[in-house]
Design a protein around this nucleic acid. Structure first.
Length: 296
DNA sequence: ACCCAGGGTCGTC
DNA sequence: GACGACCCTGGG
């Protein structure tokens, strides 16, 4: 992908493999929001960013080349060839062909593992608007304050140490519900065992899952999301309520046994599990009525 | 008013 | 392994 400076902005030339709505509405992130028809804003990697969709290009507003190279190149997974990826995913199954066409601009963001861990603990048995609100409140209460290029007050996602200042009671008051205990426990554990926490980046998918499952509030689904969106593990497949419907409806996988589901997924999507899941999730969620009606 | 689902996990049996 | 409980919010 080609990028260059234009005034205060960076221009990224794209085809159909970088579509803001697809990237930010496919359920992988919670701190990006639309401003208008063609613009999204968000806070990630400790920075505020505004992105504008133009003809065959994406405008990174008020961004230096250094910021682009240091932060956004990796965050937006710009070194991965998604046209090749999409071709291979489409070939796996007719439904995936449709799902890929529908979400053709999806990219798997490489998000901060810590933020991803806490965010998906919050996501459990919760809905997306509320998840977004709770994460925003967490940032406002414990993150670093800064002023963006529009003069607005913004907050970074709190570090593990910053989150240790949150008591369980305080987190409950903020509306975290029963997840307050999980957030509290995980913040304490991570900040007191920081070396072993950092070591997680060196683990393979199997080892990483095992390690993540030890954290309070992290089950198979949350661990899988953290691995996929935070650690870039493409060979993992989060199974949630939507995907369960998809598996039953389109892939005739009805087993409730995690190991059986896992084997079936691996057989069908081997190596492309993560990205395949995102296309299916986005496709399913945007077509919720059709799917719901299909299940007897 | 009441029930149910929402990107599930925990504790208990 | 299966089952109910669980903070809270919005929609039927």
């Amino acid at each position: 992908m080609r990028a260059y400076v234009e005034g205060n902005d960076i221009i990224l030339k794209v085809k159909d493999d970088f579509i803001l709505k697809h990237i930010f509405e496919c359920g992988q992130c919670f701190r990006w929001n639309p401003i208008d028809e063609v613009t999204y804003e968000g806070i990630a990697m400790g920075h505020y960013l505004q992105l504008k969709e133009e003809v065959n290009q994406i405008r990174f507003l008020d961004t230096t080349l250094k910021q682009f190279n240091d932060l956004w190149l990796l965050y937006f997974d710009l070194n991965t060839d998604y046209s090749d990826l999409k071709e291979r995913v489409s070939a796996l199954h007719p439904v995936l062909g449709e799902a890929v066409d529908f979400g053709s601009g999806i990219r798997i963001l490489k998000q901060d593992p810590w933020e991803t861990l806490i965010s998906f603990i919050i996501s459990a048995n919760n809905n997306i608007p509320r998840i977004k609100m709770l994460i925003r409140k967490l940032a406002e209460a414990f993150g670093d304050q800064f002023i963006n290029n529009k003069g607005e007050v913004c907050y970074t996602f709190p570090s593990p140490v910053q989150l240790t200042f949150a008591t369980e009671e305080k987190l409950r008051e903020m509306g975290m519900g029963y997840r307050a205990k999980y957030i509290y426990e995980v913040a304490q554990k991570v900040s007191h065992e920081y070396d072993s926490y950092n070591h997680l980046t060196n683990l393979n998918t199997v080892e990483l899952e095992k390690a993540l499952l030890k954290y309070m509030g992290v089950g198979p689904k949350v661990a899988s999301c953290v691995m996929l969106f935070g650690y870039g593990k493409m060979d993992t497949f989060p199974v949630d309520t939507w995907i369960r419907k998809v598996l039953i409806e389109w892939f005739a996988i009805e087993s409730t046994r995690p190991t059986e589901v896992r084997e079936a997924i691996k057989r069908r999507f081997s190596g492309l599990e993560g990205i395949a899941q995102q296309y299916l999730f986005y496709y399913a969620r945007e077509h919720k009525l059709e799917i719901g009606q299909g299940i007897k």
